[in-house]
Design a protein around this nucleic acid. Structure first.
Lengths: 354, 354
DNA sequence: CAGCGCTTCTGTATCGATACAGTACTGGCT
DNA sequence: AGCCAGTACTGTATCGATACAGAAGCGCTG
C-alpha cells in the first residue's frame, strides 16, 4: 500500500524505469539487479505494478467483456448460456485472458454507460436486445466485438460466430408441418420486452427486439407458410424468461382452450421441457396427443426424448473467444456459421386424427 | 478514437475539467453547457471518459475478481460452482458491479502474477489450493477478499462466507457408521494435485492442499474413528476432477476388489452420481448392496434419491457478494457460516449382512 | 586508439482522466 | 456600499505506470 515503482527506485538509487523493467522486461537488466529490486520490493510491501496504471499506459487489459442477457444471475440458470461460457472460458484461459461478466441494466441509457465504462480489450455479445444501443457504444470505443447475433453487423473490428437461426427453425417448422399439424402454438422467450407470459399477437415478427428469437420465429413462419398454415392461425405465446416453470405456464395457454394446439414449438429446450410437464399435468402425452419441439439440444433433451435442433453452445463460445483473441485477417472468416442438425426424437408424431 | 477530454475541451474552448464534469458530475455545470459538450463529443466521435484512466485516477474499477478452480472451463461444468456464480451475480448486478472471472494458471508463480495484475476492487476466492499463494498477493495489494475457505484467514479486509465443512462431513460419516458400515471408501475430488484418479494413501489428511476437500475428509475420519472404524481401513480414492465420469471410474477402484466397500462416501454429488452409475454397471443397487453419499444436494440428487448434505451454493455466492459490496463493520460479521442439513434418501441403507 | 556493437541503465514524455483548490460572477441581505 | 453565499467554471497537481530515445561502460577489432 502506498509503495510505487518510485519508492523502490529511490530505495535502491536506480531509476523508475529500471524497476519497471524488472517486472515487465527481465531481459533488459542484469539478473542480480533484478533480484535485488524484487527483494527490496518484497521488503517494502510493494505488490507489483499497479494494474490500472499499467493498462492505462500500455492500452491492454487482458480481459474480454461479456454482455449477457439483461439478468446476469438468470444467465447462470440457462444451460445453453453456461455451455457458451464454458467454451469462451476455455479459449480465454489458453491466453491468460479474463472474462468480465457485465450485468446490463434494463434502462438503455444505463446499459450504454456501463458498456462505455467497462475496462476491457474486447466484447462478446451474447443475447442482448437490438434496441439498447450497446453495439454502437462498443464501436465508438473502437473495440473489437464478436456477436452471436445479427451477422449483418460485421465491420473491420466486428466478428460473428453463430448458427443460421432461421434455417434451423425452418427445419423444425417443416418437420411439424410434414407431420400434418395445422393447429400450432409457438412459445417464444422474450418475444417482447419485459411483459409477462401470455398470448400475444405479432403481425410483423421481423420487428421483434431480440435477434435470436426473431430469427427463429421467422424460420417457423416461413416453413409453416410453405405448408399453407397461415400465420394468423398460429398461436404465439410470449414467455417471460427461459425457465422451465415459465414454459409450463406458457404451454397452459396453448392447451387450455377449445381448439387445443396439436403441436407446440418452443424456442428453447428449457421451455419445451416445461411444456412437456404441462402436458403431463393434463394427462396428455408428448408425441402422441401433442407434439413438442425444442431448440439447443441440452443434455436433458436426450433423456426426455425431445425433438430439437442440435447446436453446440460450447463450440460457439470457444470459437467466439478464439476469434477475439486471434482476429482473422481474412474478411471472409470474420463471420463463422456453425452447423446445426434437426434431431427427431419421441416428442413429435403425426397430428392426432390423421 | 484518439479523441480525449482535451479534444472536446479545445473544440469548445472550455477546460478539460468541465468536460469531465459533464460526464461524471452533471450538477457541477449548467445543463446547456453540458448538452453542448455532449453534442460536440458525439460529433467528434468521443466515446466518453476512458475507463482505464478513470479508474487509475479514482481508484475504483467496479469489478470483483473471481478466482475459481484451476480450470475455468471446468468450473462451468460443476452445478455447484454455477449456482455460486449465480448468487454472486445476483448480488453484483444490484450494484452495477461486474465479475471478472480469472483463470488461474497451474504454475503458482504465474497464478500470482495473474492475481497481481487483475484490474479489480476486490476478490472472491472460491476453490483454490492453499499452496498457490494468491491470498498473500491479494493482501499485499490491500484489496478486500471473501473466501469460502479457511475461516482462520480473517483480517480487517478479509471475509469468510462458507459452511462448517467438517461438521457436515461428520454427519455423513456418523450416518454411515450408524448403518453398520465398516468397509468404507471415500472418493475425494482433487485430494492431491494434478494426479490421475486412483487409490492413494493419505496418512495425514490435515496436509491436503484443498481446504474444502481436506475438511470434509477430516470430518469423515472423525466420525468413522468415533465408531471404531480405523482410518487405515478406509479406502481413499483420489478423483481428478469433479465430473460424473471421473466418479464412475473412481468408484470402480472401490468396487472391483475382493473386500468390496459397502459404503462409498463421495465429496460431491457429481461424484456420487458417477458412483451410482458404476454400481448399476456392475448389477449392484445403491442403498441395498452398497450405500452411497454425496455432498451439495444438487437438483439431480433428489431425482436419484441420493443421501447428501444440503447446502445452498447460491446463497453462499450471494452472501459473498454482499459482504464484499457492503463490508460489515462489526468484526463478528466478517465470518458467516451458512447452515447445512443431512438429507437422508434412498442411496443409503444398513450394511449388507446386518 | 578510434570505431563499433552490445548490454545495461537513465530520463523524459506520455497514457487520459479526476481531485481539489481557487477564481469570477451573480444576487440577496443588511 | 459591503458582505456573504452560491453557482459555474478553470487550472494545476496527481494517479502509477510504460515507451522510447539516449547515455554510459565495456570488450573487441583493424
Amino acid at each position: 500500500m502506498g509503495a510505487t515503482l518510485q519508492t523502490i527506485a529511490d530505495a535502491l538509487g536506480v531509476s523508475r524505469s529500471t524497476v519497471s523493467n524488472a517486472y515487465s522486461r527481465p531481459d533488459q537488466l542484469s539478473p542480480e539487479l533484478r533480484s535485488r529490486i524484487l527483494d527490496t520490493a518484497r521488503r517494502l510491501g510493494y505488490a507489483g505494478p499497479n494494474p490500472n496504471a499499467r493498462s492505462l499506459r500500455s492500452g491492454k487489459v487482458g480481459a474480454i467483456g461479456v454482455l449477457l442477457t439483461a439478468n446476469l444471475s438468470l444467465a447462470f440458470s440457462d444451460p445453453c448460456t453456461v455451455a457458451f461460457l464454458r467454451g469462451l472460458a476455455a479459449a480465454a484461459e489458453r491466453r491468460e485472458t479474463s472474462l468480465l461478466l457485465i450485468p446490463l441494466p434494463k434502462d438503455p441509457e444505463a446499459a450504454q454507460r456501463v458498456v462505455r465504462g467497462a475496462v476491457v480489450d474486447a466484447f462478446c455479445v451474447y443475447f442482448v436486445p437490438d434496441w439498447c444501443g450497446v453495439l454502437e457504444v462498443i464501436s465508438s470505443r473502437g473495440l473489437p466485438v464478436v456477436g452471436g447475433e445479427d451477422p449483418e453487423l460485421i465491420g473491420p473490428d466486428q466478428f460473428h460466430v453463430g448458427i443460421d437461426e432461421r434455417a434451423a427453425a425452418r427445419e423444425v417448422g417443416t418437420h411439424i408441418a410434414n407431420l400434418g399439424h395445422r393447429r400450432v402454438a409457438i412459445l417464444g422467450h422474450w418475444l417482447v420486452g419485459n411483459r409477462t407470459s401470455g398470448i400475444i399477437q405479432v403481425d410483423a415478427p421481423e420487428d421483434l427486439p431480440y435477434f435470436v428469437t426473431r430469427e427463429r420465429i421467422l424460420g417457423y413462419r416461413e416453413a409453416l407458410a410453405a405448408a399453407d398454415v397461415p400465420w394468423s392461425d398460429v398461436l404465439l405465446v410470449n414467455v417471460a424468461g427461459s425457465h422451465r416453470a415459465e414454459g409450463e405456464l406458457a404451454a397452459g395457454f396453448a392447451l387450455d382452450r377449445g381448439d387445443r394446439a396439436t403441436a407446440i414449438i418452443a424456442t428453447s429446450d428449457v421451455l419445451a421441457l416445461g411444456a412437456i410437464q404441462a402436458l403431463a399435468a393434463r394427462g396428455l402425452r408428448a408425441g402422441r396427443d401433442v407434439s413438442v419441439t425444442g431448440f439447443d439440444d441440452i443434455p436433458e433433451a436426450a433423456a426426455v426424448g425431445l425433438t430439437t435442433i442440435r447446436q453446440s453452445s460450447e463450440d460457439r463460445g470457444r470459437l467466439a473467444g478464439e476469434v477475439l483473441l486471434d482476429p482473422p485477417t481474412d474478411p471472409d472468416r470474420r463471420c463463422r456459421v456453425l452447423p446445426t442438425t434437426l434431431v427427431v426424437r419421441a416428442t413429435t408424431g403425426p397430428a392426432p386424427g390423421l
